[in-house]
Amino acid sequence: MLQNRETITQRKDGRFMGRFIIDHESNGKPVYQYVYGKTYEETEQKLRIAREIESQFLSGRCVTIYKVYGEWLNAIVNRVKESTYANYTMKFEKHILPVFGDMLCTEVTSAKINAFIKDKMDSGLSAGYVRDLFAVFKALLIYAQEEYNIKLSLKNVSLPKAEKKKSPKMSDEQQKKLVGYVKNHIDLTGLGVLLSLFMGLRIGELCGLKWGDIDLVHKILRINRTVQRICKQNGSRKTMLIVTAPKSSNSRRCIAIPDFLMPYLLAFKGSDNDYILSGSEKIIEPRTMQYRYKKILEAADIESSNYHKLRATFATNCIENGFDVKTLSCVLGHSSVTLTLERYVRPSRQYERRMMNSLSARM
């Protein structure tokens, strides 16, 4: 007998049986695990191996979500972008850890996650955002399962359905007013607006654009970087501005420059290392560009909207003017044609009617 916890005895059939305590029932009665061997030495070795395995398993029963969170961050820090890492930490520290942080991993159940999801939906978060919260939490739970041999079932988690809303475009009248105003008051900010409206640039890509990225001879614009403001990784609410690689490998792309933009680009051409929006090596960050854009809308007597609406307008205009979707997807830097169709393409009613009437015109 080993400290009244493990024993090895010989059975009537000649085999040896080893047992050790793995748990206790609610009434205090011990729960045993058994191993068998032909000899005492074989049984003792099996008992030692079983104890080590069970010890590792039991250690997982006592690990908290907060402890696994720290380990998981260390595991992913070198394989995700800085902005992605900051996004994950924000979601955990703002939403997930306050609810689950002190909870043992083995205490996490589908029912508790469903209650968490309902609470977040009731607080006004969108279905898409709540699904994103679960996705990052699930990644951590999978890590816990693999590292600590914890059995967690998530098959009964019920996720809200996220509506795939297409980004609305500017009306034709608004576009004419905007372009007319920008042309009459052309400056570097206005040039940036034209690049987004007629080339589909994201605001972060525009802020990261340098004159060296533009080949005026071959009329090509290259997207090599993006500018973002992210939360710092020290747990504070402070943010920092970063210049990083584009959103994805598909986002690093070359785009043909429309001929009518060439005179404006030639007029403002600066040194290769200067950012286009500032005309110097100083970065104009996205929220500053967003503010300047809204001032332009106000001056042009156009309803205020988010800067991203320019990109949505470009995408819809392309489809309405006969762009094939595959080409448009490449210009936008999307990973798939499906993403382009689901996110941006929503032809106007006038275009729809024109296409419907074109069928009868062929008869």
Rank of each mutant, 00 (worst) to 15 (best):
D272M: 04
R292F: 04
I302W: 10
L332P: 14
F260V: 07
R349T: 13
N306W: 09
A312V: 09
Y291C: 01
A299N: 03
T338C: 06
E298R: 12
R343Y: 13
T313F: 07
A256K: 15
D324I: 12
R252Y: 08
T340A: 09
I276G: 02
Y291L: 03
Q350F: 08
L266Q: 13
C318I: 05
F268L: 12
G333V: 15
H334Y: 14
L277S: 05
T239G: 05
A315V: 06
R311Q: 10
A245M: 13
E298D: 05
G333N: 12
L328Q: 14
C318E: 07
A312R: 08
E342C: 01
P286G: 02
S278G: 03
R343W: 09
S251N: 11
E281N: 05
R292T: 03
I255C: 03
V325Y: 10
I319Q: 07
L265R: 00
Y264F: 15
L328V: 10
E298C: 03
A245D: 14
K238E: 15
S329P: 12
I257V: 11
I255K: 03
L241T: 15
S304C: 06
R252G: 02
N250R: 11
Y307E: 08
F268R: 06
K247L: 07
I284M: 05
N250C: 14
F260G: 09
E285V: 11
C318W: 07
T244I: 11
E342K: 05
F314Y: 15
N321D: 07
G322N: 09
Y291F: 13
K294C: 06
T327M: 10
A312Q: 04
I302Q: 13
I284E: 02
C330G: 13
Y275K: 00
I257T: 03
L332R: 11
I284V: 12
A299K: 15
S348R: 14
L266G: 04
G333E: 11
I257S: 04
L265G: 06
K282P: 00
R311L: 11
A299R: 12
P263C: 04
K282G: 00
Q350K: 14
V331M: 13
M240D: 10
A267T: 03
A299M: 07
L261K: 00
Y264R: 10
D301P: 04
F260W: 10
Y291I: 05
K269H: 12
F314T: 02
R287I: 09
L261Y: 00
A267P: 01
R292H: 05
Y264K: 08
L297S: 01
S278W: 00
R346H: 14
L310S: 05
S280L: 09
I319C: 06
S305I: 07
Y307C: 02
R346N: 15
Y307N: 02
D274L: 01
D272I: 06
A299L: 10
I284N: 04
A312W: 04
P258F: 03
D274W: 10
L241M: 12
R253M: 08
P258W: 09
E298I: 02
L339D: 03
Y344A: 13
P286S: 07
S304K: 12
A312G: 15
K247P: 05
D272R: 11
C254N: 11
Q290H: 09
